[in-house]
């Protein structure tokens, strides 16, 4: 388990916390029905960020910001799924996540934006944030086999999205 190992690192974490907590709350609140749930998601996300944020990323930058958003979205989905009774609205929120606008390349990036939140998150964490399969195990709370399966399914879903749009080579 990664820990805050020095005063400097702790200060860096506090800076990230102060810089992004409003944004993280906004992300969580878009998916969760009340402020208290959204705060729960933000708290859980910070614990995960504390444990998993790469040392070289412990500063405020777009990559760290994206990581904070993705982890918060992931925790919000976890909270929705942990409910004993899921409403249709919960299911849709868990499937859609925060929703990401297509970048407009008419290809792979747009197809990626259309994926269900779980697949989109996994691919962004892997290919944008650069976390390894092993690191994803801890971030997503899954074992290695499940992470590998998730990534494979996400790629498969991406291929299907591309096929729908007739964008395959």
């Amino acid at each position: 388990m990664q820990l805050i190992e020095s005063e400097e690192e702790r200060a860096a974490f506090e800076q990230i916390y102060l810089a992004y907590r409003q944004l993280m709350f906004f992300v969580a609140r878009r998916m969760l029905p009340c402020d208290a749930d959204a705060e729960d998601a933000v708290q859980q996300a910070f614990v995960s960020i504390l444990e998993n944020l790469k040392k070289e990323s412990r500063r405020c930058c777009p990559e760290t910001k994206a990581f904070c958003v993705l982890v918060t979205e992931n925790k919000a989905i976890d909270l929705l799924r942990a409910k004993k009774r899921l409403s249709q609205m919960d299911l849709e929120a868990a499937e859609r996540g925060i929703g990401t606008p297509p970048p407009g390349d008419g290809g792979l990036a747009d197809a990626l934006a259309r994926l269900p939140a779980r697949y989109r998150q996994a691919l962004l964490l892997r290919f944008y944030s650069g976390y390894s399969t092993r690191e994803l195990e801890r971030i997503l709370g899954m074992n290695r086999g499940s992470v590998q399966k998730l990534l494979w399914r996400a790629k498969n879903a991406l291929r299907e999205e591309l096929e729908k749009e007739g964008n395959t080579d």
Binding site: L23, A66, P102, P103, L108, A109, R159
Partner: peptide
């Protein structure tokens, strides 16, 4: 794995989407 895109292409697409995601947030 028979995917019509390479990991490098996926990285580029993910970067584009990552930026779009951040731009869309307040």
């Amino acid at each position: 794995d028979n995917f019509p895109f390479s990991d490098r292409e996926l990285e580029q697409a993910a970067e584009q989407l990552g930026r779009a995601m951040l731009d869309a947030l307040p």
